[in-house]
């Protein structure tokens, strides 16, 4: 039995090493299934909670055009959450259980959404920086080993680049506008820069699961690798906008062909992860409220469907008789 198990696991790893996809009904190690359910559902929760900071500005967008764009983006994020929940369900997770874990605080979501969106420039910064960071995280996952997850990510990535571009366009408009508008853009960047760097997770040295996840190809770059890529990608864009990245230690390093940058405030990071960020209570409160206030709709829809089915069956019987 022991040796048989081992062989199965070796076969499984060999398929992954050959860059073959694992599909829902294939044999997989329990730990692979569990890790994936946690990773995919956390990702889904982030999409869902991620709607809240931007939803905050839909009614206050400065023009009908901006409002339509923001509405579409927020709707996309809901869609991303749904693609991902479905992918997690193919592994045997239940939707109700995943939502219950989010609402009880047992499951995590990205710490970035526990920061407040204080001005319209935050809509620009979130799209440009936060969606930009999400893209860096997500593009490699289009080639992740689990089929349904990879396919969901392909769909997500197709939609993300519009998110980033609309954010950048908001920033560009502000930066080319009045001095007050440009100051607003700079102020937003100051607040969001460091929390965005935290989105890539703890330092590699403090991320013990990375090695196994890379082996399973459910993670394809380390946290620090992605953080470095992000900084290298974003600094020139900030320069184009005429904005200053709020990091006194930021400096081009010719030898490594990338930027050196300052240390993230890890104490703040862990504090937010543990639930003590500025908006943790607000975000979770809004989620739970929406879920509870929607309960009667979910129940009524089920009752209505049952009644219609019953009526259809009765009519069928009468026709036969």
């Amino acid at each position: 039995m022991e040796t048989l198990e081992l062989t199965q696991e070796e076969q499984f790893q060999a398929r992954i090493d050959a860059d073959m996809r694992i599909e829902p009904k294939d044999w997989m190690p329990d730990a692979y299934r569990k890790t994936l359910i946690r990773q995919i559902s956390q990702h889904a929760h982030s999409e869902l909670v991620g709607m809240l900071p931007e939803g905050n500005w839909i009614t206050r967008a400065p023009s009908l055009k901006r409002k339509s764009i923001l509405l579409s983006k927020v709707q996309d994020e809901a869609g991303h959450g749904l693609y991902l929940y479905s992918a997690a369900e193919t592994l045997g997770a239940s939707r109700d259980q995943m939502l219950a874990d989010l609402h009880s605080g047992k499951a995590k979501y990205s710490s970035i959404f526990n920061y407040p969106t204080l001005s319209w420039a935050d809509m620009g910064t979130v799209g440009w920086l936060v969606d930009g960071a999400a893209i860096l995280n997500q593009v490699p996952l289009c080639r992740t080993s689990y089929g349904p997850y990879a396919r969901a990510m392909v769909r997500v990535c197709k939609e993300e680049s519009f998110h980033q571009r609309q954010g950048f366009e908001i920033m560009q408009t502000l930066c080319e506008g009045a001095p007050e508008q440009k100051a607003m853009a700079q102020e937003a960047l100051n607040r969001w820069w460091w929390p965005t760097l935290m989105m890539f997770g703890p330092k590699d040295a403090d991320s013990p699961n990375t090695e196994q996840s890379m082996k399973w190809r459910i993670k394809r770059f380390t946290n620090d690798e992605l953080r470095q890529k992000f900084v290298d990608m974003m600094v020139p864009q900030a320069e184009f906008l005429g904005l200053t990245v709020p990091d006194p230690n930021l400096k081009w390093n010719e030898a490594k062909n990338g930027y050196d940058f300052g240390e993230v405030d890890w104490e703040e990071f862990w504090n937010v992860v543990k639930g003590n960020g500025m908006c943790n209570k607000d975000r979770l409160g809004a989620r739970v409220k929406a879920h509870e206030e929607g309960a009667w709709v979910r129940e009524a829809a089920l009752a209505h469907a049952a009644k219609r089915k019953q009526r259809a069956e009765q009519e069928a019987v009468q026709q036969v008789a």
Binding site: S72, D76, G79, S86, T90, P148, A301, A305, K309
Partner: peptide, 23 residues
Amino acid sequence: VGSLHAADAAMAIQNARDVYTRR
């Protein structure tokens, strides 16, 4: 293309429109 939850077929089609054909 994927899956979703709905109370009945009509709602499933409507939700599929919103989730899978926004573009």
